[in-house]
Design a protein around this nucleic acid. Structure first.
Lengths: 166, 166
DNA sequence: CTTGGAAAGTCAACAAGGCTGACATAAAAT
DNA sequence: ATTTTATGTCAGCCTTGTTGACTTTCCAAG
């Protein structure tokens, strides 16, 4: 392997403005690909990305409260409530009153919600899987490492918390 | 180094659904970080992400036509025209009638436009640079590799074209 | 020279999904 | 008893995406 390591000399080539610009464009274009497949599916059902994000995290952490979800998504409660309400009305999401704290609402996906989650995440994972396969395990490790370093510290907490199935 | 290579056995751990899910969340959270700094700057001037994207690609390829930009950004001309018009009125962007083909409009940043571009891209590159530095050159190569594999083929063309300063 | 069609721009209308502010209710905490 | 927290809701605003219809300009082919 070529030594692109960290010791000396012309070793920081990867930090040139041009390299950084390419990284920025890569993020922009890749994110488009990342959302393309789910967007098409969501469209069929009259939903949008906001619904997808909510579904994703409710599935990830069933029973989480509205406040927790708000925190993870980083939007206002009015904004979240709009998408949550439609999904509850449509029978994709169930909102259960807390046993201990009766103010809290715990969110769960219904069978229909789980079905949509699977359809969405299968499409998204298929693309991710293809990219991973093309790039190889070492690249995947690097990918994750850079993305993690790019997050805001507060957000990184959410990410890592869910690592172990918080 | 631990062998995470491609030969056999438990070697495809990185393709488990759980690993793929983590990659998906990493993209989501990292993209938030990626746009956070420019968003704050844009807000000061009353612009949005759409303006940033236009500025980025006009700077990248000065003199490009509206149609080309439309193609790169993947939005409708009505949508692009709205942000372009405000930036032309505000004196950030200049639209020059083509010499050969007088229908075509060639877009350039003015001094003011270049100044905003610098402000935006410096902020974005600073974050990128920090992430790159933390992760190291090998990780950066992997990062770029996975992102590239994640793009739609048609989009990847744009990306690679601009690699050499199209 | 006429005409077909591409490039660009504009107007109108609409939708998703962000935002703020104000306010209501229930329940927990002090 | 009072304050704080969690949730939900109403109203209104903004950005940025969409479609559809239409005009002007002008290159290029016939």
């Amino acid at each position: 392997m070529a030594d692109t390591g960290t010791q000396g000399g012309e070793t920081l080539l990867f930090l040139t403005d041009e390299q950084l610009r390419k990284g920025i464009e890569a993020m922009f274009f890749a994110y488009r690909g990342f959302t393309a497949d789910p967007d098409r599916i969501l469209d069929k059902y009259g939903y949008g990305r906001a619904h997808h994000r909510a579904i994703h995290f409710i599935n990830r952490q069933p029973g989480l409260t509205v406040t927790t979800l708000l925190d993870v998504l980083g939007v206002t409660k009015q904004s979240l409530n709009r998408v949550l309400r439609t999904m509850i009305e449509d029978g994709l999401v169930e909102s259960r009153v807390g046993r201990k704290d009766k103010r809290a609402r715990h969110l769960h996906l219904t069978e229909a919600g789980l079905a949509l989650e699977r359809e969405l995440s299968e499409a998204q994972r298929a693309r991710m899987r293809a990219a991973y396969r093309t790039a190889g395990p070492q690249a995947v490790a690097g990918f994750r490492h850079v993305l993690e370093a790019m997050m805001d510290p507060e957000i990184r907490r959410h990410y890592q918390t869910m690592k172990d199935g918080g």
